[in-house]
Amino acid sequence: MAALRRWKSFVSVIRSNSALVWPGVRPAVQRLGVRTALFTGGAAVAVGSTLCAVPFKQVEDLSHDSLIKRAASLVTDSSSTFLSRTTLALIETTILYSKAVHTLIALQKRYLDSLGKLSPAEEDAVWQVIIKQRAEINERREHCERLDLTWASAFKLCEAAAEAAFSSGAEQACVTIKSHLDLAQSQVDEVRKISAEAQTLLTQTKVLEVERMASARGSEDEEMPEAYLRED
Rank of each mutant, 00 (worst) to 15 (best):
R5D: 11
R5I: 12
R6V: 07
R6G: 06
W7R: 15
K8P: 00
V11P: 00
S12M: 11
S12W: 06
S12I: 05
I14M: 06
A19M: 06
A19L: 15
V25E: 11
R26V: 14
P27L: 11
P27R: 05
P27W: 05
V29H: 04
L32C: 12
L32I: 15
G33M: 15
V34F: 04
V34H: 07
V34G: 09
T36F: 10
L38W: 11
F39W: 14
F39C: 12
G41K: 07
G42E: 01
G42D: 02
V45F: 06
V45T: 15
V47N: 09
G48C: 08
T50M: 15
V54S: 03
V59P: 03
V59G: 04
L62V: 14
S63Y: 02
D65G: 10
D65T: 15
S66K: 10
L67E: 08
I68E: 14
I68A: 15
I68P: 00
A72G: 02
L74P: 03
S78P: 02
S79I: 02
S80D: 03
S80V: 04
S80T: 08
T81I: 05
F82Y: 15
L83C: 04
S84G: 06
T87C: 06
L88I: 09
A89R: 05
A89I: 07
I91D: 01
T93M: 06
T94K: 01
L96N: 09
S98L: 02
S98G: 13
K99R: 10
A100W: 01
V101T: 07
I105Y: 03
A106N: 09
L107W: 02
Q108W: 01
Y111D: 07
K117T: 05
S119F: 02
A121M: 06
E122I: 03
D124C: 08
A125C: 07
I130L: 05
R134D: 08
N138G: 12
R146V: 14
L149I: 13
W151H: 05
L157E: 09
E159W: 05
E159N: 10
A161H: 03
A165W: 00
F166G: 12
S168K: 13
E171L: 15
Q172Y: 07
Q172G: 07
T176R: 09
I177E: 00
I177L: 09
K178E: 14
D182F: 05
D182G: 07
A184M: 03
A184V: 01
Q185K: 12
S186M: 07
S186H: 03
V188T: 07
D189C: 03
V191Y: 00
R192Q: 06
K193S: 07
I194H: 01
S195C: 08
A196Y: 05
E197V: 11
A198R: 00
A198S: 10
Q199K: 09
L202P: 00
T203A: 15
K206L: 11
V207A: 12
E209A: 15
M213H: 10
A214V: 08
S215P: 00
A216T: 04
R217Y: 01
D221W: 04
P225W: 01
L229V: 02
E231Q: 11
E231W: 10
